[in-house]
Design a protein around this nucleic acid. Structure first.
Lengths: 326, 326
DNA sequence: ATGAAAGCGCTAACAC
DNA sequence: GTGTTAGCGCTTTCAT
């Protein structure tokens, strides 16, 4: 069923039908408008967005590339993005990169072929630049900032300040031996968080001891392993974690070792993913406005698409949420 | 940059370029093949999949409609789907329905307009039938089975058996007072699970007591509230939960009430979502092969798309995974 | 108030 | 081996 067939049934031209369907009907008589609309309804006509896109050069779809939807942080991001996109009339193609540059580049290629109007990217590394120079694809970098020329928007959070606040909080709560478990510095945010941790220590005249730092990746297992490793040679009374997943792993290890939280060791996380309020004890953490970051990313992307803005950088605020792990 | 421009640069016709780009080059001389490919490479030509789709009537993209990506069960499903789709050369448009028929129908409309090759649907209710009759859209129903005519595939699990196994396990472990917390029966799987619970009880000559059953929805809060409610008037020694999220909420309530798990009350879940192994105590549960269900759904969908199969129903196995909550 | 016609970028049947 | 051409379904300019 095409616009042409509808046109024939209504004894008008396809141009007329097109105008009516697109609300460009100022000059169409009410009579034919009604007639056409009735036939469209009766026949269950579904317009062909592909044909429309070919003509208009716009697909009303966005591409999003994240490391892994199964990671609660990214699934919340994805949800914020999808909701906002849907609200603004866009669909979303989801891509999981597993932090692999190769997958990222492949997806960027595919998304460009599919003519998405823009891309939201949570970048793995300093990668991608190559594939992106080519076309002038509207893009916003979300959560992870990388070097890229061109009009790219950025939605980030002050990672250094967040980790600083976390560590400072531990110090205020009386901790003297604070460890740090996080991802290694392949991901830029991790480097920033490490800096924040160190700065808080230094400012309080506490020594930065590399033996109290365990860096691997942003997973539950890292938290678990980190605690085991760190507690072999240190007696910590506080652990600042690079993210909530790590904190959850750390808590698990501590629980298994019968170490009381927060009495003996205090634990603080970073992100405030959904599940963090349900672990035992509920996790005190630095909250990122995850869902909102997703929303902001699509707002910015769409304003770039519509040429209403060039790429700017928006830094959202983190806040400390107190629960019972500290 | 179009195929036509490439053709001009190479002094060939656009048909030739098209053939080369699509590997239909049996009759193309190696010389021009090389020449064209070089230019394509040099110019960074990116093909226009929209134009191609208009011609070929195939978009190599699938639509997936799930209630909520932030729910760990569905995010794992989504990941399984996206991985399998990517492996078979398809992209995935993600849609969150929030279990609302209205959103489902809207998305189905949009997906049809965007000419996706097929749809994977985790349906909210008995809904949708209307919007789907129209076109002959290849579809597979995932996780939740609903009545629909036409060639739809189905990937499900034996929910009744799973819940039966769970409850049976509790009985074997010595429980005499087993409660059941789950979603209400708007979702069909929930009704099935309730039946499984009841059957296990009946078979063991235990009385089914409606006061020991709390039904609301599939969320952590339901588990939490359920325990509070049920324990007001009953002294349970076992709780069979409709899913893991509920079990996590139940455990949280139990922990708060200083009730020892599993010594005083045993808890069993359903799904085996990722996080379940990390709660305290780690959750014993009925594992669904979630990721695999996603994969199977796309395999089946693509075989329907390619006319290699009509809709069949595939029932995947659940297994009991023992951890420390029982 | 409506229609004719060109064209978006590609593929594929057919001609040469 | 390669090119010509029609056409996918739509939008949009311009004519009437």
């Amino acid at each position: 069923m095409t616009i042409k067939e509808i046109a024939e049934m209504a004894n008008v031209s396809s141009a007329t039908v097109s105008k009516i369907l697109n609300g460009k009907d100022q000059y169409i008589s009410e009579a034919t408008r009604q007639r056409v609309l009735e036939i469209v309804e009766r026949e269950g006509y579904i317009s062909n967005a592909i044909a429309k896109s070919l003509k208009t050069k716009s697909t009303s779809t966005l591409g999003i590339i994240i490391p892994d939807v199964m990671n609660l942080f990214f699934s919340e991001l994805a949800r914020g993005i999808e909701d906002a996109a849907e609200g603004m009339g866009y669909s979303v193609i989801l891509c999981n990169s597993d932090n692999k540059t190769s997958k990222e580049e492949k997806y960027i290629q595919v998304l460009q072929e599919k003519m998405v109007d823009g891309i939201i990217l949570t970048a793995s590394e300093q990668s991608v630049s190559n594939s992106l120079k080519r076309r002038n694809m509207p893009m916003v970098l979300l959560d992870r900032d990388i070097l890229i020329e061109g009009n790219v928007g950025r939605i980030v959070v002050d990672n250094k300040k967040g980790a600083y606040d976390a560590t400072k909080y531990l110090i205020e709560k009386g901790c003297n031996n604070i460890g740090f478990i996080s991802s290694d510095n392949v991901v830029k945010s991790s480097g920033e968080r490490l800096k924040g941790y160190k700065q808080a220590l230094t400012e309080s005249n506490m020594e930065v001891d590399e033996n109290k730092i365990y860096l691997h990746n942003y997973s539950i297992d890292t938290g678990y392993e980190g605690v085991k490793k760190l507690l072999e040679n240190n007696k910590l009374d506080g652990i600042s974690c690079g993210n909530d997943l790590i904190a959850i792993g750390a808590i698990k290890a501590l629980n298994e070792m019968k170490i009381k939280i927060p009495e003996e060791v205090k634990v603080i996380g970073f992100d405030d993913i959904q599940i963090s309020q349900y672990v035992e004890p509920p996790l005190t953490t630095i909250k990122q406005p995850i869902y909102e970051m997703g929303e902001e990313a699509v707002k910015m992307l769409i304003s770039i698409i519509e040429n209403k803005s060039v790429g700017e950088t928006k830094v959202l605020k983190t806040t400390l949420v107190e629960r019972r792990s500290c």
